[in-house]
């Protein structure tokens, strides 16, 4: 046996990769499979799972309802479709805003003097590694009716003698959007920076040499060459935004419910894991479809691995 392993490269490779593959199989693939199985099941009155094959959870998710106001047997209930749509549009809006904010900063860092680049990157890493929950909390304090933003606007208005009454910014869709942008901004800055930094300076010189001014150089050379970073960043932002529930939970309250909140509640408060599983699979399919079409168009960025 030992001799065989020593002589066979394939056996050595399998052996080395085995623990990881095994681990991933049991904690990623089996759970996904279980989720699929349970999503076809039914909830027992005490919140357990009754295995079976029923598409009820999926039809419910897409609006089929038997709990109708005017005594009809079935009707369309847009609640869950609205939640899915809200999550999708929020993810798109967040990603677009994040790209808009991250790109100039990444460009600024990449074109900074090499000696100062580390400092500027360091300034991006601090918020990135500050805990996710703490970062939402920070915004909770800023956005509250009694919070810092209202205080500052109030002070400014007072100086200019404009009447101002503090208003509640917390528990609004805007608050959730700002929170999401804040949470995921660094994940966009770093890959864009990486791809911008890779561009050889001689390419900028070549473009100038061939007659391109600064704007044209940016549009024709810099932007296309940094697309891999934008793609990687989009994957790192869009997918987690689709599934995050803390931001909407804390900054959106009961006003802004996303698919993440829906899933979480099925597993904790509502105790309907079968419906939660179905919602979670739909969420996964939505992200995979969007990612697939997006990467097919722009390629899969190799900047995706943070290092």
């Amino acid at each position: 046996m030992l001799k065989r392993i020593r002589e066979s490269k394939a056996a050595q490779g399998t052996l080395l990769a085995l623990p990881t593959t095994f681990w991933l199989f049991f904690l990623l693939i089996i759970p996904l499979f279980l989720t699929l199985v349970i999503s076809f099941g039914k909830r027992s009155p005490d919140g357990d799972v009754i295995y079976g094959f029923s598409l009820d959870n999926y039809t419910r998710l897409f609006g089929y309802s038997t709990d109708c106001p005017d005594g009809q047997a079935s009707c369309f209930n847009p609640l869950y479709v609205q939640i899915l749509w809200r999550s999708l549009t929020l993810a798109f809006n967040t990603t677009a805003l994040v790209i808009g904010m991250a790109y100039p900063l990444a460009y600024f860092i990449a074109r900074a003097h090499p000696k100062k680049r580390n400092l500027f990157l360091f300034l991006v890493l601090i918020p990135l590694w500050t805990n996710f929950v703490i970062r939402v909390y920070a915004w909770m304090m800023l956005l509250r009716k009694e919070g810092a933003i209202n205080i500052i606007i109030g002070a400014l208005a007072n100086m200019l003698h404009i009447p101002f009454t503090p208003f509640e910014m917390l528990y609004t869709p805007g608050a959730v959007l700002v929170g999401m942008v804040y949470e995921f901004l660094p994940f966009m800055i770093l890959p864009i920076y990486t791809s911008l930094e890779k561009i050889d300076i001689s390419l900028y010189e070549a473009a100038a040499d061939l007659g391109a001014n600064a704007v044209k150089t940016f549009l024709r050379v810099t932007l296309p060459l940094s697309m891999p970073g934008v793609v990687a960043g989009t994957i790192l932002v869009f997918i987690p935004v689709m599934g995050t529930f803390i931001v909407s939970d804390i900054l959106g309250g009961r006003q802004v419910i996303l698919v993440g909140n829906l899933i979480q509640r099925q597993f904790l408060d509502a105790r309907d894991p079968t419906f939660g599983s179905a919602a979670s699979l739909i969420l996964m399919i939505m992200t995979l479809v969007v990612t697939y079409f997006y990467t097919r168009k722009f390629g899969f960025g190799e900047e995706i691995v943070p290092a």
């Binding site: 990623l28 279980l34 989720t35 979670s280 969420l283």
Partner: peptide, 18 residues
């Protein structure tokens, strides 16, 4: 690549179910 392309919550409820 699974943990990168699948939202964390999907993994979370998956392992919880497991």
């Amino acid at each position: 690549y699974i943990p990168i392309v699948i939202p964390e919550i999907v993994m979370g409820i998956g392992v919880l179910t497991l």
